[in-house]
Design a protein around this nucleic acid. Structure first.
Lengths: 134, 134
DNA sequence: CCAACACCTTCCCATCGTTGGAAGGTCAAG
DNA sequence: CTTGACCTTCCAACGATGGGAAGGTGTTGG
């Protein structure tokens, strides 16, 4: 199986597969006589693992740890759970940050009549308003 | 006022002030005989505007538009409001994406006993589980 | 047998916002 | 006159991905 098929089968682009190999996330693939990377079913499994972890927002570093745990048949599930919950905390912090932005912006937008008149509380706030970001 | 004081007063680092100037977000600052950038009170106002807009998650491109609207005393507040609400939609899409990740991860983590045993639904899911991401 | 085309290789560059550092010039105080 | 704090420009990195060039490979068809 060439990299194109592996990409197709795993949902990870060929570009990314090469990149993951280069940064050491994936072991170097074996090569054909012509130098083409060759992949088997278990490689595709690994790529799908990476893809799913990316979809869940894990960083490539974290995915490296997850891969290690995955391959370690004697891992403690507590380690995996801790990694996952730590990531959840990161995500929730990010969510809270974005929600705070949304709250402020909605508040400002509500106060803005939003017509042809130039008067605009949004710009006023950005220009140094009183920050009632409640 | 040198760039250091302007940075201190505005909350935008000197590095970023230079960068914003270089990418054309800010007009080139006037220079002293020695080539030092010089800033006045209105420059600091502009920097603070940029800082607040960044804090609200606007891209530098969007901030450029906001600055134009800010400086245009005959702007229509509807334009500003539209820009803000469009940004809110972007933020909320991102929030929804992150929340979906959190939901899935929490679900998986709940199913994981998280002790010394190796059995782990989180890894099972990443390795190709049935995706009950409800 | 050779052309066309799809695929592969490596390499560099772009994004986005920010930070870090190196190498060198300037300025004020001791 | 030196020290230290500041400024300048330039170059590179992060994290994850994409785009594209230049060149080799492999298969198919005329």
């Amino acid at each position: 199986m060439n990299i194109g098929q592996a990409a197709e089968a795993s949902g990870v682009s060929a570009k990314m597969i090469r990149h993951y190999e280069q940064i050491g996330l994936l072991a170097p693939a074996s090569r054909s006589d012509a130098g083409y990377r060759r992949y088997g079913a278990s490689d595709v499994d690994t790529l799908r693992f990476v893809r799913r972890a990316r979809d869940l927002g894990f960083s490539l570093d974290a995915i490296g740890e997850l891969l290690d745990l995955w391959r370690d048949r004697s891992r403690a599930s507590g380690e995996v759970k801790a990694l996952a919950l730590s990531h959840v905390e990161t995500l929730e912090a990010k969510i809270a940050e974005l929600q705070s932005m949304v709250r402020t912006l909605r508040h400002l937008a509500e106060a803005c009549h939003g017509d042809d008149r130039p008067d605009c509380p949004i710009l006023d706030d950005l220009a140094g308003g009183h920050h009632c970001h409640g």
